[in-house]
């Protein structure tokens, strides 16, 4: 198993080595030591490798991921798994702001709490947070699912489009055009699958509430003009 120690190796060397994995390479499990909050660790991966990072990372870890499994054995800075396309990024500690921002696909799991703007502008990614999410989470969320096992902060789902939000704990406040919606059987099934994929067994999907778009701001109406102020 290749082990890269960022105390001595250049980040650029690590990322380029990960980008140039030949198809069918046997080096499918990588370990990264001493990240010490470094930015852009394991970004732009494009193959089904597993990268385990022993320690906390800075901004944009696992950014634009395709196919790879990235595990952060620590906490992640802003924008973890930003614009992910597929694969999985798992943060064992907490995630800072913008977790999973603009992600198109794949699964982001945060075992601790996620900070503000979790899932901002998400475009199809699934995000499962074991703890809480901060304010403005799922802001302008377009598609995908955000599952919050704990509480959500202020203005959840502000200006949301078609993303689905599931929150088990309290919601401090809902953002513009975000409303609570009925939890139908297909939602319970989906939620159960997401919790299962995230490895959070024993959490009852029926204990969640579902939120989504009221679709009142989709086309301008003078009666909603206050929401544009």
């Amino acid at each position: 198993m290749p082990v890269v120690d960022l105390a001595t190796a250049e980040l650029r060397t690590l990322n380029q080595a990960l980008h140039h994995q030949a198809p069918g390479s046997n080096e499918t499990a990588w370990e990264v030591l001493n990240p010490h909050g470094a930015h852009a660790v394991a970004v732009g991966l494009n193959a089904p490798v597993t990268v385990t990072i022993k320690g906390s990372v800075g901004y944009y870890c696992g950014g634009m991921n395709r196919e790879a499994q990235v595990v952060v054995d620590g906490s992640a800075g802003p924008g973890v798994a930003e614009n992910m396309m597929s694969g999985q990024v798992r943060v064992k500690g907490d995630a800072s702001q913008y977790a999973g921002a603009t992600g198109h696909g794949g699964l982001l799991v945060v075992e601790g709490n996620a900070s503000s703007r979790c899932g901002i502008s998400m475009k199809g990614i699934d995000i499962v947070v074991r703890g809480n999410v901060g304010h403005m989470s799922a802001f302008m969320a377009q598609a995908g699912n955000l599952v919050v096992c704990g509480d959500a902060g202020d203005a959840l789902g502000d200006s949301i489009y078609e993303a689905r939000l599931f929150v088990r704990g309290s919601v401090k406040s809902l953002g513009a055009d975000c409303i609570e919606k009925e939890m139908r059987p297909e939602h319970l099934k989906l939620l159960g699958e997401l919790l299962g994929k995230a490895g959070f067994d024993g959490i009852d999907p029926t204990s969640f509430k579902r939120f989504g778009s009221a679709r009142k701001l989709y086309n301008f109406s003078v009666d909603n003009a206050d929401s544009y102020g």
Binding site: G77, S116, H135
Partner: peptide, 22 residues
């Protein structure tokens, strides 16, 4: 401003680490 700045502090592994609310 970033966790990076705190990473070398003694006992940071077990510290309560959080982001201040707006």
């Amino acid at each position: 401003s970033e966790y990076r700045a705190l990473a070398a502090l003694p006992g940071i592994e077990t510290a309560k680490v959080w982001e201040p609310e707006p």
